[in-house]
Lab assay of single mutants.
Amino acid sequence: AQASVVANQLIPINTRLTLVMMRSEVVTPVGIPAEDIPALVSMQVNRAVPLGTTLMPDMVKGYA
C-alpha cells in the first residue's frame, strides 16, 4: 500500500516543514506520497495541521 505523509506534531499555520514534523504512514484517504517528504522540507503549510493529520496537496503552499 502507498504510504502518505502524516503530521508528527501540531504544525502551526505558515510553518516551514522540517523532517521531524513528518512521518510516513499507510492511511485512507491517501495524501501526499511519502517519497515526496524530501521535497516538502522548507515548504509552508497554509493551515494548522493537527498531530496525526494526513497532509493533502492543498495544505502545502507551492506543492500542488
Rank of each mutant, 00 (worst) to 15 (best):
A1G: 14
A1H: 10
A1V: 13
A1R: 08
A1P: 12
Q2A: 12
Q2P: 15
A3M: 13
A3P: 15
A3N: 09
A3R: 15
A3I: 13
S4G: 04
S4Y: 03
S4P: 02
S4R: 00
V5K: 00
V5I: 14
V5W: 02
V5D: 00
V5L: 03
V6Q: 03
V6A: 03
V6I: 12
V6L: 06
V6Y: 02
V6K: 04
V6D: 01
V6W: 02
A7W: 03
N8T: 09
N8E: 07
N8A: 15
N8V: 10
Q9H: 08
Q9N: 08
Q9Y: 13
L10Q: 13
L10E: 13
L10Y: 14
L10K: 13
L10W: 12
L10H: 14
L10F: 12
L10P: 15
L10G: 09
I11R: 00
I11C: 02
I11D: 01
I11K: 01
I11N: 01
I11A: 01
I11M: 05
I11P: 00
I11W: 01
I11Q: 01
P12R: 07
P12D: 09
P12Q: 13
P12C: 04
P12G: 07
P12Y: 06
P12I: 06
I13K: 10
I13H: 13
I13L: 08
I13D: 15
I13G: 11
I13Y: 14
N14W: 10
N14R: 10
N14T: 05
T15P: 00
T15R: 06
T15K: 07
T15V: 11
T15A: 14
R16H: 14
R16P: 11
R16D: 06
R16F: 10
R16K: 09
L17D: 01
L17S: 00
L17A: 00
L17G: 01
L17E: 01
L17T: 00
T18A: 10
T18E: 10
T18R: 07
T18K: 13
T18G: 05
T18H: 06
L19C: 03
L19P: 10
L19H: 11
L19Y: 06
V20T: 10
V20C: 05
V20K: 15
V20L: 15
V20W: 11
V20S: 06
M21F: 04
M21C: 03
M21V: 04
M21K: 03
M21Y: 05
M21A: 05
M21L: 05
M22Y: 02
M22N: 01
M22S: 01
M22G: 00
M22P: 00
R23P: 02
R23L: 05
R23W: 04
R23V: 06
R23T: 08
S24P: 12
S24T: 14
S24G: 08
E25R: 14
E25P: 00
E25C: 04
E25K: 15
E25Y: 06
V26E: 10
V26N: 09
V26I: 14
V26H: 07
V27Q: 04
V27R: 15
V27C: 04
V27M: 11
T28L: 15
T28P: 02
T28Y: 15
T28M: 10
T28R: 07
P29C: 03
P29N: 04
P29L: 05
P29D: 05
V30W: 13
V30N: 10
V30A: 15
V30E: 11
V30P: 11
G31E: 02
G31N: 01
G31R: 02
G31L: 02
G31I: 03
G31T: 01
G31H: 02
I32M: 03
I32H: 00
I32N: 00
I32T: 01
P33N: 07
P33E: 04
P33H: 10
P33G: 06
P33S: 08
P33F: 08
P33I: 06
A34N: 06
A34S: 13
A34W: 06
A34T: 11
E35P: 08
E35S: 14
E35Y: 15
E35I: 11
E35D: 14
E35M: 13
E35N: 13
E35L: 12
D36M: 08
D36C: 05
D36G: 09
I37E: 03
I37G: 04
P38V: 08
P38Y: 14
P38L: 10
P38G: 10
P38D: 13
A39E: 07
A39W: 07
A39R: 12
A39L: 15
L40D: 00
L40C: 03
L40Y: 02
L40V: 06
V41M: 05
V41W: 04
V41H: 05
S42V: 03
S42T: 10
S42I: 03
S42Q: 13
S42D: 13
M43Q: 06
M43E: 06
M43H: 12
M43R: 12
M43P: 00
M43L: 15
Q44F: 12
Q44T: 12
Q44S: 15
V45W: 00
V45A: 06
N46A: 07
N46V: 11
R47D: 05
R47T: 11
R47E: 08
R47V: 14
A48L: 08
A48T: 09
A48F: 15
A48K: 09
V49T: 05
V49G: 01
V49A: 05
P50Y: 09
P50A: 11
P50I: 07
L51C: 05
L51I: 13
L51T: 15
L51Y: 14
G52C: 03
G52F: 04
G52A: 06
G52N: 13
G52L: 04
T53K: 08
T53G: 12
T53S: 13
T53I: 11
T53R: 07
T54L: 04
T54F: 02
T54E: 02
T54Q: 03
T54A: 05
T54R: 04
T54H: 03
T54I: 10
L55A: 00
L55K: 00
L55N: 00
L55M: 10
L55C: 02
M56C: 03
M56V: 06
M56N: 09
M56H: 13
M56I: 09
P57D: 06
P57S: 09
P57Q: 08
D58Y: 13
D58C: 05
D58F: 10
M59S: 09
M59D: 14
M59Q: 05
M59W: 14
M59N: 07
M59C: 03
V60R: 01
K61M: 14
K61D: 15
K61Q: 14
K61A: 13
K61L: 12
K61V: 15
G62K: 08
G62N: 12
G62A: 08
G62Q: 06
Y63K: 03
Y63V: 04
Y63P: 04
A64S: 13
A64I: 13
A64W: 04
A64R: 03
A64G: 10
A64K: 03
A64M: 08
A64D: 12
